[in-house]
Write a protein that binds this DNA or RNA. Structure first.
Lengths: 104, 104
DNA sequence: AAAACAAATAAGCCGATGCTTATATGTGGC
DNA sequence: GCCACATATAAGCATCGGCTTATTTGTTTT
């Protein structure tokens, strides 16, 4: 689960869209395809890449496979970004929201 | 300067290494190459990609071109990550350090 | 002006990547 | 067992991406 695999996995917009959908709630591959104009095979391959990168976890449930975001998945990316926090813009909405979330 | 261009730019390990070097201090392309076993042309092309992604800024200084990290560059990546903060592991060293930095 | 050096660009090569279609594997219901 | 459905995998194709070499552009020095 190297940093590089994660960046590669997230470098494709379709995979980021899939990840985003999963972040809104775990579901199976068929449900993921809804409204996405993507073949069954392509979806399966994308999910495989996301899983290899540790961004997604899967669990078989009967004849479906349930996918969901792996909470540890973004860790390396967070660490990578944190290395450069001297370069983060000082006042960023996202940061403020993040702070509010964490400050407890 | 779309999100996608940034992810693509950072998906290459050589470019992340270049960015990392620049984060340690701005310098020109020749200096960047030191200890990196990369051709002049390849370096120039990588820097071009980083610049297009808004991660790096350049300024001509005589016959050298000085490159440095563009402070706004990581903004979109930060925003992207912040979207998924419900999935961030609660106790992360990087986060704690970040908090300490920001909480003032 | 000419030579020397820094960087950018052009063109081509080749491996990586995302897609397609076709087929295989897994699982539940009849 | 057999069929239907969910997902994975194989194989091939087209495009993309990072590299190379060669050349061009820009700037300083003499």
């Amino acid at each position: 689960m190297t940093e590089n695999i994660i960046f590669k996995a997230l470098s494709d917009p379709t995979r980021r869209a899939i990840f985003d959908k999963l972040a809104g709630g775990g579901r199976n591959a068929t449900a993921l395809r809804e409204g996405m104009e993507i073949s069954q095979s392509a979806m399966s391959q994308h999910l495989s890449v996301l899983r290899e990168a540790g961004l997604v976890r899967e669990e078989r449930q009967g004849r479906y496979v349930h996918y969901e975001v792996e909470p540890q998945g973004l860790l390396l990316l967070i660490r990578w970004l944190a290395k450069y926090r001297t370069y983060w813009p000082a006042r960023v909405d996202a940061l403020k929201a993040l702070l509010k979330d964490m400050d407890q």
